[in-house]
Computed example of a mutant assay.
Amino acid sequence: MKIALVGYGKMGHAIEEIAVEKGHEIVLRIGIENLEAFTKENIAKADVAIEFTSPHSAVENIKTCVDAGVAVVCGSTGWLQQLPEIEHYVSAANGAFLYASNFSVGVNLFFELNSFLAQLMRKHHDYHVTLEEIHHTQKKDAPSGTAITLAEQVMRYITGKKQWVNHTSDNEAELEIISERIDPAPGTHKIKYSSYIDDIEIIHTAHNRKGFASGAVMAAEFLYNKKGIFSMKEVLGF
């Protein structure tokens, strides 16, 4: 498989290492030093583009890849208010697109665990639920896309929570997400249910970027030669 890396920072380098180990070819690397090379002609050399950039550039990057007829795996977060627009754009072009707030297999298992626990807790109104996430200081968005996914899963079942907020709150209708930025933390996410009797917590802690990178390559392998819009649920068979 021929891969274009759109975003060649630490994550792009980690993805390249794993992709090459698995026998794939990196045909294009786009970083801040060579943005002029990000053209439809160059992108078209790839079978799949893996996009890890920033909230400000992700949407246009995805569209450029779709216009070139190249499948897109996107891991940029902080732009999801435009996800319906992108899904419509991909469908209209008969393209292939896969977005995930987190590609780690462990985190996606954690998502399933979070949903199951929220279902169990929805009738136990004595418990107050909060979220906490910790990332490195270069993380541009807060809360993380992973934390937002976790919050939305919780609110699906804990219906008293109407919206998430990125600060402490005394409003029972608001789900707190507390964000910290500490180096060199790759990512920790905690969901805590507290009562006056006890606490219940589930925690996922990443030790390095390898889990995210290997999941992104797995997603690209899944998307290769497909059309449509997918998620990590299809990749992992959930």
Rank of each mutant, 00 (worst) to 15 (best):
E33T: 12
E33Y: 01
E33M: 10
E33W: 00
N34M: 04
N34E: 00
L35H: 03
L35I: 12
L35W: 03
E36G: 12
E36H: 09
E36M: 12
E36I: 14
A37F: 08
A37Y: 05
A37E: 13
A37I: 10
F38D: 09
F38Q: 10
F38S: 08
F38L: 15
T39G: 03
T39P: 02
T39N: 01
T39H: 00
T39M: 04
K40N: 11
K40F: 11
K40C: 11
E41H: 03
E41Q: 11
E41V: 10
E41N: 07
E41C: 06
E41F: 03
E41I: 07
N42S: 07
N42P: 13
N42T: 07
I43N: 07
I43Q: 06
I43G: 09
A44W: 00
A44S: 14
A44Q: 05
A44L: 03
A44K: 08
K45G: 01
K45V: 03
K45A: 08
K45N: 10
K45C: 03
K45P: 07
A46P: 09
A46M: 05
D47C: 09
D47A: 10
D47H: 11
D47W: 04
D47N: 14
D47M: 11
D47E: 13
V48H: 04
V48Q: 05
V48P: 06
V48M: 04
A49M: 05
A49I: 06
A49R: 02
A49L: 05
A49K: 04
I50M: 02
I50F: 00
E51P: 09
E51Q: 14
E51K: 10
E51G: 12
E51I: 14
F52P: 02
F52A: 14
F52M: 15
F52Y: 13
F52L: 15
T53K: 02
S54D: 06
S54I: 02
S54V: 06
S54Q: 03
S54P: 11
P55M: 08
P55L: 09
P55K: 08
P55H: 02
H56N: 15
H56C: 15
S57I: 03
S57C: 09
S57N: 08
S57E: 04
S57A: 11
S57W: 01
S57F: 05
A58Q: 02
A58L: 07
A58V: 11
V59R: 05
V59N: 03
V59Q: 04
E60F: 04
E60V: 01
E60C: 01
E60W: 03
E60T: 07
N61A: 12
N61V: 10
N61D: 13
N61S: 14
I62D: 02
I62V: 15
K63A: 01
K63R: 09
K63C: 02
K63P: 00
K63W: 02
K63S: 00
K63F: 03
K63N: 00
K63Y: 01
T64E: 11
T64R: 15
T64Q: 13
T64H: 14
T64Y: 10
T64K: 15
C65S: 14
C65M: 10
C65F: 02
C65D: 08
C65I: 09
V66L: 12
V66H: 00
V66Y: 00
V66M: 09
V66G: 06
V66C: 09
V66P: 04
D67W: 07
A68F: 06
A68H: 04
A68S: 12
G69L: 06
G69P: 08
G69R: 04
V70I: 12
V70C: 12
